[in-house]
Design a protein around this nucleic acid. Structure first.
Lengths: 338, 338
DNA sequence: GTCTGGCACTCGCTGCGGGTGAGTGCCAGA
DNA sequence: TCTGGCACTCACCCGCAGCGAGTGCCAGAC
């Protein structure tokens, strides 16, 4: 176990390095922080910290920089979450309150988060798995062609074409629409399959095939669309990354275009509380020199989706975590209201 | 007017510079191209080309690089559009044929274009102005709350909430739905306003307010949604930009996040044929060191939206133009089929 | 007139060498 | 256990010379 002062030294190193982007030496440390000891002592502490793997030197005679392990300790033990200032909070709320629909909420959130943290922001659309059905609409486009529109309580709308095995009358269509809605409106996606199970039986033989086709498409939409969508923003902030540019930034840009990677990234987030993945803790190789701060959001205690930011491991963790948490909270509120 | 050979020299310079990214000198030129003249002659030609502003030297004793004006001449007079190879065409078609809905078409297009050109791709969603109404659906969510769903012939679906001034019965709703659809289905957006003008008059006084509110929202949706959406991809290709990285790339990333800027960019595209904007020809300052190749696409001779790529001015114009044109053509086909 | 070969010149790039300074490790003493 | 001192390392910053690709100009050939 590291002594109190050594932890303090680590904290100072992290803070200075995050601020200056340059390896920090013992002398500079004692000058900028009131550690109450001499540079020589700090040097000894640094030697220990290096031995334990919390810091490293780029070259033999240079200052130290924190390792992933060092940041981990910093985040876990040394840093709190820095709450936002009141004006900042107010600004968030005002900005998000202006949103007109779900796309707009997500779009505003992503811009807000990117701006506050000066990093790349990733926001997941509210997941459908926890959602309930608000309405299902069926339209006849041609005698044997229907359009199915699903509307969820989170304001999302999904549509699918359905090619029917046989022509389907207006009357049957209205009938199916009414019965289907009667069964599923207000119910959770996960409960829907068993609720509609015996619906085809109550139709005439000639329509039964079509009803089954429609139901199949409907269930497929529910299932497929659990595949969540994302919005990202603030990629211009990647330019603040570091000196050795193209090499670091390229895999990050590639990762950001791979929705699958990002979803997996967010998917690993704890249900409760914030998750910080530092450097090599990220499963995806391209993100090995980045940290990801993410958190779930939702209304009324339930997590409906996640959001977060991606930035260099050398980031202001307390500030970033504060911004991420605050934004998640307000987005949850907005969703609850609408 | 420049002599034939001088044009040939310019073409050679552009081709070499695009290939090597390095200023090209007279000797290297004569070695790589069969110009039939000596380096000294080429030097004289280069002096003239420089005088006229088609090429420039970065330093006094270095090779020449094309200027924006030089690229312009190259594109206008010297370069054709390089058609894609048959396997490439087949690959495009196969890839796009797998799309299941509009989002998927646009998503695949953007990825395809980015991959083919190795540049940043921008694809605009099919515009609503040229679209026709396929169906309008009205749902009752609460006694005085409706949801309006608009479905277009391009497969787009838009929804809006409508808060009614007074409760609206199921019968009236069905009535409105039927009459509204009767009037607008198959019609162009631009024609809709006058078609529904006198609709409220045919309703009872008590419902008239609601009908007017619904129509207002409907027209608003048509108008607002002409505001087009975009999808971009291939941003990782920005890393191939050049040596002086962060400075060049940052404004480009910023521009790419500004939908407004991009829309304006594409908006300037000629109705017919391909547009190439080189360097400073781009109105937006951040894109001064990029070129934009864009073209409209659509089905049956009508342009419903635009797509293009953004890359360094030093790009392979014939190849890029070929890819952009080919992709636009196939997307048009896909849209026409569905 | 036009093209060519020759020649002197420019100037960015590379590599070498020394000086500087921040930073380190170690050690003896408080 | 902390501190001050000391020798050492090594990245970084010049300044300098040599190299070479490239240029402009000019006299002569076709």
């Amino acid at each position: 176990m590291l002594s109190e002062r050594r932890l303090e030294v680590l904290r100072a190193i992290v803070q200075d390095y995050v601020g200056t982007e340059e390896p920090v030496g013992s002398k500079a440390l004692t000058e900028r922080h009131r550690l109450g000891v001499s540079p020589a002592t700090v040097r000894n502490d640094m030697a220990v910290l290096e031995e334990e793997g919390y810091i490293a030197q780029p070259h033999t005679s240079a200052g130290r920089i924190p390792t992933d392990k060092g940041y981990r300790l910093f985040v876990d033990k040394l840093a709190g979450v820095k709450p936002l200032s009141t004006p900042e909070r107010r600004a968030i709320q005002n900005f998000l309150d202006g949103a007109v629909d779900l796309d707009d909420v997500v779009g505003r959130t992503v811009r807000l988060l990117a701006q506050l943290t000066r990093q790349v922001a990733v926001v997941q659309y509210p997941s459908l798995t926890r959602s309930t059905v608000r309405h299902v609409e069926l339209l006849s486009l041609a005698p044997a062609r229907l359009m199915l529109v699903l509307i969820t309580d989170t304001g999302r709308v999904e549509q699918r074409m359905v090619d029917c095995p046989a022509p389907f009358g207006e009357q049957s269509l209205a009938d199916l629409r009414a019965r289907l809605n009667g069964k599923v409106v207000g119910r959770r996606f996960t409960d829907v399959p068993q609720l509609v199970q015996d619906l085809p039986e109550s139709f005439d033989a000639e329509d039964r095939g079509t009803v089954q086709t429609v139901l199949a498409t409907f269930l497929e939409t529910l299932a497929e669309d659990t595949e969540e969508r994302l919005m990202i923003g603030g990629t211009a902030n990647l330019t603040r990354f570091g000196h050795d540019f193209p090499l670091t930034i390229r895999p990050v840009l590639e990762a950001l275009e791979e929705q699958v990677v990002l979803l997996k990234l967010l998917g690993e987030v704890n249900e409760s509380g914030m998750t910080v993945r530092i450097g090599h803790e990220n499963a995806y190789e391209g993100l090995n020199s980045t940290s990801v701060v993410s958190v779930g959001y939702g209304s009324g205690g339930e997590t409906v989706a996640k959001l977060g930011v991606v930035g260099p491991t050398r980031m202001d963790y307390p500030g970033t975590m504060g911004a991420v948490r605050a934004v998640a909270r307000y987005v949850g509120q907005i969703l609850a209201e609408s």
